[in-house]
Computed example of a mutant assay.
Amino acid sequence: MNTFQINFGKPLATMVLAAGFCMASLGIHAAPLLRCDVTYAGSTHLVEARAVADPYPVASVDIAGRFRFKAVMVGQGAQVDYIKLYTYLETARQPVLIQQATYRPPFMVTSVPDGLTGEQRVYGGPKERELIYRCKLQEVTP
């Protein structure tokens, strides 16, 4: 007769690790995560994006009142169809789009902080203010 026994004496970390191995063996992956470090005037903001079906409601992030940055990852589950990054310059009337970049599969998945985009430098306004960003894609199925 087969019996199933749970040993509650094992550390929680061992059980979590075992669950991770089970998920990996079943082909279950964590949801993709896009992480962007956006720097202006020596201050860095972390902008994260998860896969969405509709890109339009995704809000842009204020960067020190000078720029806005929007990261959109369109897809479902572990599947990413495309990524779009938008950089806007804040003006008195409204934000003005100064850069838009599109990334399509296959995506580069690495452990380096700028694995997807490299380091990008965007300049805007009469004083040519500089915004620097770098993005990395994590947990995506190649």
Rank of each mutant, 00 (worst) to 15 (best):
V80G: 01
G75P: 05
P55Y: 06
A30L: 15
L116W: 04
E130H: 07
T3I: 13
A30D: 13
A92N: 14
T87V: 15
T110A: 12
L12E: 10
L34S: 03
M15L: 15
E128C: 03
T44G: 07
G75I: 01
Q5P: 00
D114I: 02
G124Q: 03
L12S: 08
M15V: 14
K127I: 09
A51G: 02
N7W: 09
A19G: 14
G124C: 05
T91Q: 09
F69G: 00
P126H: 12
K84A: 12
V74W: 03
P113M: 11
R121S: 14
L85H: 07
Y56F: 12
K70H: 03
Y123M: 09
G27N: 10
A78Y: 05
E48W: 04
V96F: 05
A18N: 12
R104I: 08
P55N: 05
F8R: 11
Q100P: 03
G124S: 07
L85F: 04
G125Y: 08
M15W: 14
V112F: 05
Q79M: 04
A51Q: 09
P57R: 02
G118D: 10
Y40N: 08
T91R: 14
G20Y: 06
R104K: 15
V16W: 06
P105I: 13
V61F: 01
P11W: 06
E48R: 12
I98G: 05
S25M: 15
V61Q: 01
F69I: 01
V74P: 00
Q76M: 06
L33Q: 10
G118C: 06
H45T: 07
G124W: 01
S60W: 04
Y88S: 08
F107P: 04
G125P: 03
T3D: 14
Q79P: 00
P113W: 11
Y86W: 11
F4K: 14
L131T: 05
S25A: 15
V61P: 00
D114T: 11
E90R: 12
M73D: 02
I63T: 07
A19Q: 10
R50S: 12
